[in-house]
Each structure stands twice: as structure tokens, then as C-alpha cells.
Amino acid sequence: MIRLHKKKSELTADAIVNTIWVSTFLALVLTLPALGVFLGIYFTTSNLLVGAIVGFGLHFVALAFSDRISRFLTRLLS
């Protein structure tokens, strides 16, 4: 049988709201620049492959720094 440890942790409404805002802003920071670069390259050069590669690369570079971005957003919104 699986036994789950019950920890007493009180989550306040402020902590939950802060978590939701940080998650939302992190999602925006990770997706919108890559999408903007992809669409910008696609509409200016009409080259879908180059836009996809550059946008995909930018997205993963942003993912590499997501821990730092998350900590910054948490400090900013706290």
C-alpha cells in the first residue's frame, strides 16, 4: 500500500495568487519573443524554415534561463 506523508503546509491566498502571476508572466516571457521572431522572419523573408529554426532556437535559449527568469519574477512580484 502506498503511504503518503502528510505535511502541514498552509498556503495563503497571497502565495497562490503570486504563483499564478509568476507562472503566467514566465509563460509569456518564454513564448512571445520566440513567436515574434518567428513571425517577423516569416513575414519579412517568406521563409518558413528559417523562421521556425530561429524561433525554436530562441525558445530553447529562453528555457535555459527559465530558472533565473522565474526567480527574478518571483522577487519582482513579491
Rank of each mutant, 00 (worst) to 15 (best):
F25A: 07
M1F: 08
S78H: 11
L48Y: 05
R75C: 00
N18S: 09
G55F: 00
S46K: 15
Y42S: 00
V54F: 00
P33Y: 00
V37L: 06
G55S: 00
L26K: 06
S78A: 12
M1E: 13
L4R: 13
D14S: 09
A34L: 01
K8G: 12
T12N: 08
L26F: 03
L49P: 10
F65R: 10
D67N: 11
R71N: 15
T24N: 03
T45S: 15
N47E: 05
F60K: 07
L39N: 07
F25P: 07
L39E: 13
T19S: 15
V61T: 11
A15L: 09
K6Y: 13
F56I: 14
V61D: 05
H59N: 15
T12Y: 03
A64K: 11
L35W: 10
T45H: 05
V61W: 01
M1G: 13
E10H: 15
D14V: 09
Y42T: 07
S78C: 04
H5E: 13
F43A: 12
D67A: 15
F56T: 13
T31G: 08
T74M: 09
S9C: 09
V17L: 10
T19M: 05
T24K: 01
T31F: 10
R75N: 09
K7H: 11
A64D: 06
S46P: 13
S78E: 06
L28T: 02
V22R: 05
K6I: 14
V17F: 14
F38D: 02
Y42Q: 03
G51S: 01
L30P: 04
H59D: 12
K6F: 10
V50Y: 05
I16E: 11
V61H: 08
E10P: 05
L77I: 11
T24H: 01
H5T: 13
F56D: 12
F72T: 08
N47Y: 02
W21K: 12
F38K: 05
K6S: 14
F72N: 08
H59C: 14
L32M: 10
L49W: 04
G57C: 12
L32W: 01
L63E: 15
S9F: 14
V37P: 02
I41Q: 01
F43S: 13
S66K: 05
S9E: 15
S66E: 06
L11Y: 02
F60M: 14
G40H: 01
A34H: 01
G40L: 04
L26W: 02
L63D: 09
I16Q: 09
I16D: 08
T19A: 12
V54P: 05
L28Y: 03
T44P: 04
G36Y: 05
N47C: 00
G57A: 14
V61M: 07
N47P: 00
L28S: 01
H5V: 13
